[in-house]
Design a protein around this nucleic acid. Structure first.
Length: 380
RNA sequence: GGGUAGGUGGCAGAGUGGUCAAAUGCAUCUGACUGUAAAUCAGACGUCUUCGGACUUCGGGGGUUCAAAUCCCUCCCUGCCCA
C-alpha cells in the first residue's frame, strides 16, 4: 500500500490487487449475491463505481459456491472485470443469529446457520470462510468474525472479541495454507488481500485489545466491526476515531458497512480508507435520492459541515406527482439527464423496476462523486 | 310484468341483535432504511379532541328493541333467471 497524499489523518493510498489498482478512499456498493438488484454492470460502471462487495454466506445459499467456482470464479461469473471484496458472512452472524436465535447458533468452532425456509443447516467455520473466499477468487477477503450487538454487556462483547481474535488466527492459518496450495507468493499481485475485523462495541479498551490481537497475527487491512451506531442511533465518533488510531497506518482501514454520506466523510477524516454500504442502492430502491447541497457546490468537501453538505428527497411523495422539473441540474446520471420528478414518481407508483433502477443508479453516481470529491479535497 | 340474489368506509370484501367507527386485502398519506432474511418494514387512513373521549356513519325513509350494519315495513337502485 502506497500513501500518495494525505491531509491530517485522511489520506489517499494506492494498492494493487489482481483485478486492478485501487485508489482510496473508495466506496463499494454491496452486490451481496453477485449482483446489485436491478442494475447491470454498465449501470454500475457508468456510475463511476469500480469496486464492489459480495457476500460469502449469501453466495453459499444462492447459487452455491460450486457453481461460482465452476463458472470460473466470481469475477468471471459476474463478468465484472474490476476488484471485488468478499465479506465473510460474519455480519450474518450478527444480523441473523445474534438478532434471532432461531436463525442459527454460534460456537467457538464457528457459526451454524439454519434456513427458515428449507430448514437446511449451513456450517461456517473460519477455515471454511477462507476456503470459500479463495474459491470465489476475490481481490480482497475478510476473516470470519463475531459482531455482537451494541446492547450486549461488556462481558459478552469481550467474549466476542476473544472469539473474533481466535477465529482471525484460524483464518490467517487457513489463508497461508491456501496461498501455498495455490502457489501464490506474498508479493504476488494475484494474492488476495486479507482483512481482520476489530470488534469491541463502544468499549475503547476492547477495541484496542482486539486491534492489537489482530495486528499480532498480521493482516493487510483491518476493519471496523459491528454497528457504528449506538443504541440511540448516534454515530460513535470517538470509537471510530480511536479504533482507526489503533490500526497501523501502513495497512488498509476498512469501515465496514459505513455508511451515510456524513458518516463516510467523518470516517475519512479519521483515516478510514474503504467503505461499503447498502444505503445508496437500498434507499434508491425505496425511492430516496441523494443530492449535493448547492451551497457547497464548489467547496472543499472535507472543510464543510459533514452533516450539511447533502440532502435527500423521497421521490414517491405526493408533491412530486405533478412536478415536471428536472430531478437535478448538477448531476449527469442517466436519471437526471433524461427524466422529470413526475416521471420517476410515476415509475415508483406503477411499481415498475425502472424506477428503482434509475434511483439506484443516481445514488451510486452520487456516492462515486462523493468519493471523488473527497480524494480531490485530500489532494489539495 | 313474474321470480330471485344483493346494496357495508376510495375499491374489493368480512360481519347478520350488544365485545362494530366496522376484520382483511388493495389503493392512499407519512416515516424508517448504515459489512442486504429489505423491489422491504412501520405508522396513519369518518369528523372533532383538553387524547379521556365526544359526535356522525353500513342505499333512502319509517319502525321493533334497553341496544340495529345485523330484525320488520316501505321506497329507490343493481345483477341474474323466466316472460
Amino acid at each position: 500500500m502506497k500513501i500518495l497524499s494525505n491531509r491530517e489523518k485522511s489520506r489517499i493510498t494506492e494498492f494493487e490487487t489482481k483485478n486492478g489498482v485501487n485508489t482510496t478512499p473508495f466506496f463499494m456498493p454491496d452486490a451481496t449475491r453477485g449482483f446489485i438488484k436491478f442494475l447491470g454492470n454498465n449501470d454500475i460502471l457508468n456510475s463511476g463505481i469500480r469496486q464492489m462487495v459480495v457476500n460469502t454466506y449469501h453466495l453459499i445459499l444462492n447459487p452455491g459456491v460450486e457453481i461460482v467456482k465452476d463458472g470460473g470464479g466470481i469475477n468471471k461469473f459476474m463478468n465484472w472485470k474490476y476488484p471485488l471484496l468478499s465479506d465473510s458472512g460474519g455480519y450474518q452472524v450478527f444480523s441473523l443469529i445474534h438478532k434471532n436465535s432461531k436463525m442459527g447458533s454460534i460456537t467457538d468452532d464457528g457459526a451454524v446457520f439454519r434456513s427458515p425456509v428449507s430448514g437446511a443447516k449451513h456450517n461456517l467455520t473460519p477455515e471454511r470462510a477462507i476456503q470459500i473466499q479463495f474459491d470465489l477468487g476475490v481481490d480482497m477477503m475478510v476473516c470470519l468474525d463475531d459482531p455482537p450487538p451494541n446492547h450486549y454487556t461488556k462481558k459478552q462483547i469481550s467474549g466476542a472479541v476473544d472469539r473474533t481474535i481466535s477465529w482471525a488466527k484460524r483464518c490467517k492459518d487457513e489463508y497461508e495454507r491456501q496461498l501455498k496450495k495455490r502457489g501464490l507468493s506474498l508479493d504476488s499481485s494475484e494474492r488476495p488481500l486479507l482483512f481482520g475485523v476489530i470488534q469491541g462495541g463502544k468499549h475503547l479498551d476492547l477495541r484496542q485489545k482486539c486491534a492489537k490481537g489482530l495486528a499480532e497475527i498480521g493482516f493487510d487491512g483491518y476493519g471496523f466491526g459491528a454497528r457504528h451506531i449506538d443504541e440511540d442511533g448516534e454515530f460513535m465518533e470517538e470509537v471510530l476515531e480511536k479504533t482507526a488510531s489503533f490500526i497501523p497506518d501502513d495497512s488498509i482501514k476498512f469501515a465496514l458497512g459505513i455508511g451515510n454520506p456524513s458518516d463516510i466523510v467523518r470516517c475519512v477524516k479519521m483515516g478510514w480508507d474503504l467503505f461499503d454500504c447498502v444505503i445508496p442502492t437500498r434507499e434508491g430502491r425505496h425511492g430516496r435520492l441523494f443530492f449535493f447541497d448547492d451551497e457547497i457546490k464548489d467547496q472543499d468537501i472535507l472543510s464543510v459541515d459533514p452533516s450539511k453538505f447533502y440532502f435527500t428527497e423521497n421521490i414517491t411523495l405526493e408533491k412530486n406527482k405533478k412536478d415536471f422539473s428536472k430531478i437535478s441540474d448538477n448531476c449527469d446520471c442517466e436519471l437526471c439527464k433524461n427524466h422529470t420528478k413526475a416521471y420517476l414518481n410515476h415509475l415508483f407508483r406503477a411499481k415498475d423496476p425502472n424506477g428503482a433502477r434509475l434511483a439506484a443508479i443516481h445514488n451510486l453516481h452520487f456516492y462515486a462523486k462523493l468519493m471523488e470529491r473527497i480524494r480531490q479535497s485530500i489532494d489539495k
